[in-house]
């Protein structure tokens, strides 16, 4: 496993990932990243960098090193299984077409 950038000895401030909620009712969405010495400063920096045009009403910051991702090489095993399972989708059921409220 490779060393995540956040714990990189070549940087004085670690890397943080920033998630911003654009409006009430929406999820927090990944906006980008930044450097900050700690969580308090990370959230301030995120506010100053990613919301200066009113893009957000709430922010999350996460140390980049704390994020675990799925293995890109296992893409097939992980993400191709839904193919063919069409019965999970409403459009699969065509016989009810035209019946009200279905």
């Amino acid at each position: 496993m490779t060393t995540p950038g956040a714990a990189d000895a070549r940087e004085i401030w670690p890397l943080w990932e920033v998630f911003v909620r654009a409006n009430r009712g929406l999820s927090h969405v990944h906006a980008g990243s930044l450097h900050a010495p700690d969580a308090t400063m990370a959230i301030q920096n995120a506010r100053d960098l990613y919301t200066r045009r009113g893009e957000g009403v709430s922010i999350w910051v996460v140390p980049a090193e704390s994020i675990t991702t799925s293995d890109p090489d296992a893409r097939g095993a992980w993400f191709e299984s839904p193919a063919g399972k069409n019965y999970r989708h409403a459009v699969y059921y065509t016989k009810s077409e035209g019946v009200p409220h279905l």
Binding site: M1, T2, T3, P4, G5, A6, D8, L15, E17, S33, A64, E65, S66, I67, T68, T69, D71
Partner: peptide
């Protein structure tokens, strides 16, 4: 397997 999605540092 902690892996940063945005700051991967491949050694080779």
């Amino acid at each position: 397997m902690a892996q940063s999605p945005t700051a991967q540092v491949p050694t080779t």
